[in-house]
Write a protein that binds this DNA or RNA. Sequence first.
DNA 1: TGTACATCAGTGAACGCGCGTTCACTGATGTAC
DNA 2: TGTACATCAGTGAACGCGCGTTCACTGATGTAC
Lengths: 206, 206
Amino acid sequence: MKNEPTKRELKKQELKENLLQAAKNRIKNNGLTSLRARDITTDAGCALGGLYTAYDDIDNLVLHVNSITLNALGTELKAIAANHKEPVERLIELARGYLKFACDNHNLWSALFDHKMAEGVAVPEWHLAEHAMLFEQIAMPLAQLNPELHEAELTTLTRSIFAAVHGIVSISLQDRFIAVPRKELDTQLTQFVEFLIKGFEASRQQ
Amino acid sequence: MKNEPTKRELKKQELKENLLQAAKNRIKNNGLTSLRARDITTDAGCALGGLYTAYDDIDNLVLHVNSITLNALGTELKAIAANHKEPVERLIELARGYLKFACDNHNLWSALFDHKMAEGVAVPEWHLAEHAMLFEQIAMPLAQLNPELHEAELTTLTRSIFAAVHGIVSISLQDRFIAVPRKELDTQLTQFVEFLIKGFEASRQQ
DNA sequence: TGTACATCAGTGAACGCGCGTTCACTGATGTAC
DNA sequence: TGTACATCAGTGAACGCGCGTTCACTGATGTAC
């Protein structure tokens, strides 16, 4: 017969969840850099050592927070895709959605890119799959726009467009460079993606 | 009368230079993350404390290394600009040059972006000026392409193009994502900038 | 030029702090009868 | 259902390490006469 979750298992699950939420909120409010095990466990209401019964180490915990973030982003982008069927429009709205998400969740979003795995430790498979899901959102309208595109070309183009949009969003949100008002940034990004698609279509028609 | 540099001043200058080169080579070979004061001073042939007679702290030393890197990049880009007068071609070659530089000086180039100033400490003016010099290289051919562009538009467009190219180069050189062969990357980047300019010109002619 | 003193760049051992991780212990939960 | 024992999740003090920075000291360089 199927095992009921025991009281022990329930408590463990609850602890994991508490730690996860505590870590997420810490990152959200103070950024990844200042994340400390002691703060997380204090917030989660358990002892310092408790963290290590629930997760292998802090890296592992951060990975799970990033997973939540990535899925939240995925959900938003999928909603956008559902609301904009026309491919060009969809691509533009996806870019705008990405900017919005990055602005609204600045620290969580930064953690996605700032977090480096310990040397020689590979990113787990399930996390890579979550990345792929996002790329899929860009690849679909692109394929629709150019049905004759080969698989390899599509992958390449998807990557480049993501990287370009990410680059623009990224540079604008860094303190390193002069901040641009959110509204203006949105306009710029929209324009940029329009240029890009226009250029892409133009070169196709030659 | 003008003071000759004393023997003391000469030695001090030599020490500064040794430390600078040692730090640069450490970053070049092992990356910014694993940079340690002890390694630098060992390599430079001075005692640990010596570092603090020449530079305020490690951050300051890294800033000077980044300055060297930025100027090396600037020199290469200027040479490219000099060799390609036609604006579209020049923009493409600048992008390719940026990719080449990033590949050839991976760790030094990464340090440019990975290095964060200590909280609340601003990047010094002279270093910001070095940034501006690079943007200038992009802005010039863009202005040539569209003489009627306003100052603000030009700045904006320059930033976006830099950010997009940087994003593509950046994502390709991170271990996080699957590596793309250098040669192929070069082709992709060239294509991408071509699209961009084509789209930009098309939207101008409307 | 030579001597005696003053300065200060450079030394390196020691400090100090942050902080992730461990581990001997304990008390709540589970199991056997 | 109740009792006695076994297990193991969770505890938190202590460990350990890395590493930037300091500071009392010294020996080379500079200065005064």
